[in-house]
Design a protein around this nucleic acid. Structure first.
Lengths: 188, 188
DNA sequence: CATCTCATGTAACTGGTTACATGATTCG
DNA sequence: CGAATCATGTAACCAGTTACATGAGATG
């Protein structure tokens, strides 16, 4: 799948593996991320499949840049993927839920501590979506008017992050409350 | 991580790889799943690490069962993992969001169709959490009273699924609405 | 003087999926 | 009579992570 993230960004404009990592970090990072090592490897594979081409731009004082660009075959592949509907739900993996499921093993106070810690992390992430992400999208759309049409979709993905984190915080508050109630009942 | 799901279930009672797949399917399936092939492989690894032991129960007319049980070392490992707080947020991966991010490539009607399809899937999943999952938990807790203490945690994970799917549907409705509005503005 | 940024990559490993192989019994 | 269930496993592959290796220039 990283393949399509890379093709998607290269379809806006050519860039290096390093640049791609930053593009991802700034925009799709919260729902699709990748390490540099994986990006370099995937680009190599993409080039051997002729979906992208690269050329080296020599530089002085720092490593040469290998700039990738999408090919017509790459554009076709991207478009085909985008056009194919997802007919199933994606399976989720959430470590916190897995730990919570088996939490009786370690007792209520121990799990409460962990839930409160996560609550703070999600709370901070929720604020991030409300503030920083929202202004980033506005800025890019203003600076590069040819991408203004994209903004509605970018904003939708940001909004997802916002709702997701708000839901997570709400659920944690509710869950923490329930466990606290059971503890005080046990004490009676 | 599957490792800990397996240890967690074996800590309730011994069972086979096949049984484990069903336990997972029925309970942690919506936040942690695995294919049989992975389960068998992981059990083998766990046994060589002496966290579980197995013995074969011969059967007639069908394959012999290899029943696994957790060892004391396995219990210690499970408890240690459960006790270690998660200090970071887990990175998410969501293919629908990735497609949506690049959706201008294929146009608004094409993406709307896909979003509506997903809306129905998530709607159905939300109902599943409200109805089937909730009654399953009640039934298990009644049938096996020694697991009644577990029910509060199980119910919390079920509730997460319910809130998650409700949030997803809400977001899809909102997003579909936004895109439809932009389309009708374009038409003017 | 240390850390961050720019910039490339490879290798080993871990986690997970897909496909293959087998075969009796039970349910509709 | 066909599909699902019970029950085991292996092998090849794909995706992703961690660790290693290099090194100049800019920032504080």
């Amino acid at each position: 799948m990283l393949k399509y993230a890379l093709l998607g960004f290269l379809n806006y404009a050519p860039r290096t593996g390093y640049d791609l990592e930053q593009s991802i970090e700034k925009s799709t990072g919260h729902f699709w991320h990748a390490k540099l090592s994986q990006i370099y490897g995937t680009l190599k594979k993409l080039e051997s499949d002729e979906l992208v081409v690269s050329h080296v731009e020599p530089q002085e004082g720092r490593p040469d840049r290998r700039v990738y660009d999408i090919t017509q075959a790459g554009r076709n592949d991207l478009r085909e993927w985008l056009s194919t509907p997802l007919t199933d739900l994606e399976p989720t993996k959430d470590t916190l839920l897995l730990k919570l499921f088996f939490a009786r093993q370690i007792g209520k106070e121990a799990i409460l501590m962990q839930l409160r810690l996560q609550r703070d992390l999600h709370q901070r992430q929720a604020e991030h979506y409300r503030e920083i992400s929202a202004s980033n999208i506005r800025r890019i759309a203003e600076e590069q008017p040819h991408l203004a049409e994209e903004a509605i979709f970018w904003e939708a993905t940001r909004r997802f992050g916002e709702l997701y984190e708000a839901m997570y915080v709400q659920w944690l508050d509710e869950t923490i409350g329930n466990i606290e109630t059971v503890i005080s009942e046990d004490d009676r």
